[in-house]
Design a protein around this nucleic acid. Structure first.
Lengths: 233, 233
DNA sequence: ATAAACTATCACGCAACGTGATAGTCAAGG
DNA sequence: CCTTGACTATCACGTTGCGTGATAGTTTAT
C-alpha cells in the first residue's frame, strides 16, 4: 500500500524509528493507523533528505507538532520544486547551447544542483533542533547554575568509568544517581523515557557536545548505561 | 563551482566514472571543459536516482548521445516534478484531513511517494540499456550462430578456471584467446577498450546473465582477468 | 622563507537498506 | 486433516556513495 519494502519497516523498527503498536503472538508486526500516519511523516522527511537519526530526534521531540511539520514540509517541497525548475531551465539552455544557439558559462551549467547538502536543515533546526532540545533542556538549563555542582559531579563520576563496561555495577550505580537526580529535579523519567533520553544524547549533537566536554565518548557510554539501566527496570 | 566535493571527484575517478583528461606532474587532477560537461551529465543522472554503475555503463555505451540524453533528462525531470506536485496535493489534503475537514484513505496518504524505485529506469533501459548493449552485441549476436562453437569453447575453458586466480598463466592464456577471438571477428580491441568491455560484463546484467550461464561468477572472473591482461599490454 | 591554503593517497567508517539463508505461520483448496 | 503457497520472522553479511581523519607533498601569498 505505501510502497516501502518489508526490510525498510524492519529497519525502522530496529533503530526505533517506527515501532508497530502491536504484534501478534507469533511475532508478526501490526501497524495501527497512528503508525501509518507516522510513517507518512517519516517518508516526507526522508523525501527531503533528512537522515533517519534526525527524523527520529525530531518526531520524538516533545515540541514536535504534526500540523506544523506538514506546513513546513509543504514549504520545503515547494522549494524543491523551485530547484527542479531551475534544473529544467539549465537543461533547456544546455540543449540550446549544444546546438550553438547560445553561450553558457560553467556556473550556469550547474545551476540548480543541490550544492549545499539540504537547505532545509537550517530551518528544521530552528523549528525542532534548537527549539526541541532547548525546550527539553529548558528546565535543566534554567537551573543549571544552581545545580551545576551536582550535575558536574555525576558527569565526572561517569566520565571516569567510561572506558569500562556500561553494565558494570559501578557504572550502573552512577547511572542510578543520574536517574535519581533527574527524577528529583525534573518530572518523572520512567524507563522508556530514560532510555529515549539516552538515545538523544548521541542522536543530537547539542547534547553530545555538552556531555563529551567531560570526556570523549561519554555520551555514548551514558546512552548504553542508561539503556541497560532502563531494561533492568 | 559545481558544488561537488573533492572526495566525490576522487571517487568518480577511482571507479572510472570520470577520469580527468590531464594531471600535473605532481599528480593534481586537471579537469577539461569536456570533463565538466560530462560531470553535468553525470549529475543529471544522479539527480534522477541512477546508481553510478549504470551511469557509467550508459555514458560509456557506444550509442550514447548527449543531445538525446539531455532530452530524456528533461522528460524525467518533468516527471519528477509531477510527482512532487502529487506529493504537494497529498500534503494539502493531509493538512485539511487533520483539521477534520475532509476524509482520506490510506492509499491517498501515500500518493506521490516513489514506490517503484525509479520510473525512468525502464525508459532508460529502452534507450541505452538494450539499445546500447544490443548494438554493442549486434556484431556478435548477428553471427552468434556461426561462431557459437568457438565462443562456447572459450567460455567453458574460462569457466573451468574461474575459481582460481584471474592472473594465473592459464587464465591469462584463455583470456588472450578471447582477446584474439574478438579481434579476429570484430574490429579492434585496444587494452583500454578490452578492459572497459570486461567492466560491462559485470555492470550490465544482460552481459552478466549471458556469461554466467557457463558458470556462476564467470563474468566477474573474466572482468578481472581482462583487466589484468589489459594492464599488462 | 614561511605560513596558509590547497592537493594527493590510503584506509577505515557510516547510513540505509538489499539480499540470501533458514525457519516459523496462516489461509485456502483438495 | 493436510499439504501447498504466500506470507512472516530473525540473523548476518554485502553494497553503494561517499565522509572523515591521518599523513604528506605542492602552490600561492606575504
Amino acid at each position: 500500500m505505501v510502497g516501502v519494502s518489508v526490510r525498510t519497516l524492519h529497519h525502522y523498527d530496529e533503530i526505533g524509528l517506527l515501532t508497530p503498536d502491536a504484534t501478534t503472538e507469533s511475532g508478526y508486526r501490526l501497524y495501527s493507523q497512528d503508525n501509518l500516519d507516522m510513517l507518512q511523516q517519516i517518508l516526507f522527511f526522508r523525501e527531503l533528505g533528512f537522515p533517519l537519526k534526525k527524523i527520529k530526534a525530531i518526531i520524538n521531540s516533545p515540541s514536535f507538532d504534526r500540523q506544523e511539520a506538514l506546513l513546513l514540509h509543504r514549504e520545503m517541497l515547494l522549494e524543491k520544486r523551485r530547484r527542479l525548475d531551475e534544473m529544467l531551465a539549465t537543461i533547456d539552455k544546455t540543449i540550446r547551447h549544444t546546438k550553438g544557439e547560445v553561450d553558457m558559462t560553467n556556473e550556469e551549467k550547474f545551476a540548480g544542483f543541490d550544492f549545499s547538502q539540504n537547505p532545509y536543515e537550517e530551518e528544521a533546526r530552528r523549528r525542532w533542533g534548537d527549539a526541541a532540545v532547548d525546550k527539553a533542556n529548558a528546565k535543566i538549563a534554567g537551573r543549571e547554575e544552581s545545580l551545576s555542582a551536582e550535575m558536574e559531579a555525576i558527569y565526572k563520576r561517569l566520565a571516569a568509568l567510561r572506558h569500562g563496561s556500561p553494565g558494570s555495577e559501578e557504572a550502573q550505580r552512577a547511572i542510578k544517581a543520574w536517574h535519581d537526580f533527574l527524577n528529583d529535579n525534573f518530572g518523572e523519567y520512567p524507563p522508556g523515557a530514560f532510555k529515549e533520553l539516552g538515545e538523544m544524547y548521541v542522536a543530537d549533537e547539542r547534547f553530545t557536545k555538552n556531555i563529551d566536554r567531560f570526556g570523549e565518548g561519554l555520551a555514548v557510554f551514558m546512552r548504553d548505561a542508561m539503556a541497560i539501566f532502563a531494561d533492568g527496570n
